[in-house]
Simulated scan of single mutants.
Amino acid sequence: MDAVLSTLFYSEGAEIYTLDCMAYFMLFMAACTSVTLLFVNVPYGRYTSSKYGFPVDARVAWFVQEMPAFFVPLCLLLWTTTANTSVLPNQMLIAMYFCHYFQRSLIYPFLIKGGKPTPFASFALAFVFCIYNGYMQIRYLSHYAEYPEYWVTHPCFLTGSVLWLVGWLMNVHSDHILRNLRKPGETGYKIPTGGMFEYVSGANFLGEITEWVGFALAGHSIHSLAFAIFTTVVLSSRAVSHHKWYLTKFENYPRSRKALIPFLF
């Protein structure tokens, strides 16, 4: 892959410039997406519409669309020169990224019970995003990110790492609750309870947002920040949509429960 990258970029300076541009473009897309989501819901799950393309089986869609987020970075680590993977901060940040996407791409899809099909447009956009972001995050961390030796004891890194772990555990636990809402043979929607669902409607979304905000704080780069902001924009919109839907669907839905941030929002 070094030969491919050297063909695409005439120097390391050109590649890092490209990585920076990719991050700023992601920030731009986050701004555009935040405006768009004021008027439409992300077309997936209960908001699926045929106008966004033919349906893709939920398990297949999740597995295929998330795969590049794991395997593109893996290829970068195995088949390119990785100048900074021997440095502890880089190793830990790369491990955070892979821990999330190992679970998300190789475990989560096979745990899905039923699940509404995903429109092809949503599936295709997610697939492209995972390639784009996977390359941007891991190429920067493995080859260009430089941290001082003391960075692993810096308050930003320590706080970010704790946030990442708390968010990851919250995300995995919330997904477990959602998968087990219905008993065998039951159909229809139910009110999720337990864990952070006692406080917010989008506990799984809050978990993932917390993960990547922690990752951005620990990583201290425009690349990780752009990912955290884009994730926050998309998932906060989903949380608000779910909250409104629950309030409309269930008369007995807990009125004290917020959409995304406990006690506040």
Score class of each variant (00 low, 15 high):
residue 108 Y to D: 05
residue 65 Q to C: 13
residue 81 T to K: 14
residue 45 G to C: 07
residue 29 M to K: 08
residue 59 R to S: 09
residue 129 F to A: 06
residue 182 R to T: 07
residue 264 L to D: 01
residue 14 A to K: 07
residue 62 W to H: 05
residue 224 S to R: 01
residue 236 S to C: 11
residue 29 M to H: 09
residue 250 F to D: 09
residue 223 H to S: 07
residue 35 V to T: 12
residue 53 G to K: 04
residue 108 Y to M: 08
residue 207 G to D: 02
residue 21 C to P: 00
residue 54 F to R: 13
residue 2 D to S: 11
residue 2 D to L: 07
residue 67 M to H: 04
residue 172 V to K: 03
residue 256 S to V: 09
residue 20 D to Y: 13
residue 191 I to S: 05
residue 54 F to H: 10
residue 121 A to W: 12
residue 98 F to W: 08
residue 142 S to W: 03
residue 233 V to D: 02
residue 179 R to C: 00
residue 254 P to W: 07
residue 264 L to Y: 12
residue 198 E to F: 00
residue 165 L to V: 15
residue 105 S to N: 07
residue 102 F to E: 01
residue 5 L to P: 00
residue 198 E to K: 10
residue 42 V to G: 00
residue 68 P to D: 07
residue 96 M to C: 14
residue 143 H to R: 14
residue 166 V to C: 10
residue 73 P to K: 08
residue 186 E to N: 05
residue 219 G to K: 05
residue 253 Y to N: 08
residue 82 T to G: 07
residue 45 G to R: 11
residue 247 L to F: 06
residue 84 N to V: 05
residue 7 T to D: 12
residue 165 L to N: 03
residue 239 A to C: 08
residue 238 R to I: 03
residue 26 M to V: 10
residue 174 S to Y: 00
residue 241 S to I: 06
residue 205 F to K: 06
residue 146 E to F: 08
residue 83 A to Q: 11
residue 17 Y to N: 13
residue 168 W to L: 14
residue 102 F to R: 01
residue 247 L to W: 02
residue 178 L to E: 08
residue 74 L to I: 02
residue 49 S to N: 13
residue 201 S to D: 06
residue 227 F to G: 05
residue 34 S to Q: 13
residue 134 G to M: 09
residue 132 Y to A: 07
residue 138 I to V: 15
residue 259 A to F: 06
residue 181 L to H: 04
residue 229 I to A: 07
residue 201 S to A: 13
residue 239 A to F: 01
residue 175 D to G: 03
residue 68 P to S: 07
residue 35 V to S: 09
residue 74 L to H: 04
residue 258 K to W: 06
residue 3 A to C: 03
residue 53 G to T: 04
residue 236 S to Q: 11
residue 98 F to G: 06
residue 34 S to M: 15
residue 64 V to K: 01
residue 68 P to Y: 08
residue 26 M to K: 07
residue 195 G to K: 01
residue 103 Q to Y: 14
residue 70 F to N: 00
residue 82 T to H: 08
residue 146 E to T: 13
residue 190 K to N: 03
residue 25 F to W: 13
residue 177 I to A: 02
residue 38 L to T: 13
residue 92 M to W: 12
residue 185 G to W: 09
residue 215 F to W: 12
residue 122 S to Q: 09
residue 192 P to C: 05
residue 238 R to K: 11
residue 108 Y to H: 15
residue 87 V to Q: 12
residue 163 L to W: 03
residue 224 S to M: 11
residue 265 F to P: 02
residue 63 F to C: 11
residue 16 I to Y: 03
residue 242 H to A: 14
residue 18 T to V: 12
residue 80 T to Q: 12
residue 176 H to Q: 11
residue 154 H to S: 14
residue 196 M to R: 00
residue 52 Y to M: 04
residue 99 C to K: 03
residue 24 Y to M: 10
residue 221 S to A: 08
residue 145 A to W: 00
residue 156 C to Q: 11
residue 218 A to S: 10
residue 118 T to M: 15
residue 39 F to T: 14
residue 216 A to Y: 02
residue 97 Y to M: 02
residue 48 T to Y: 14
residue 41 N to F: 09
residue 96 M to E: 12
residue 153 T to R: 12
residue 4 V to R: 09
residue 143 H to T: 10
residue 50 S to G: 11
residue 157 F to M: 05
residue 127 F to T: 10
residue 148 P to F: 04
residue 137 Q to H: 09
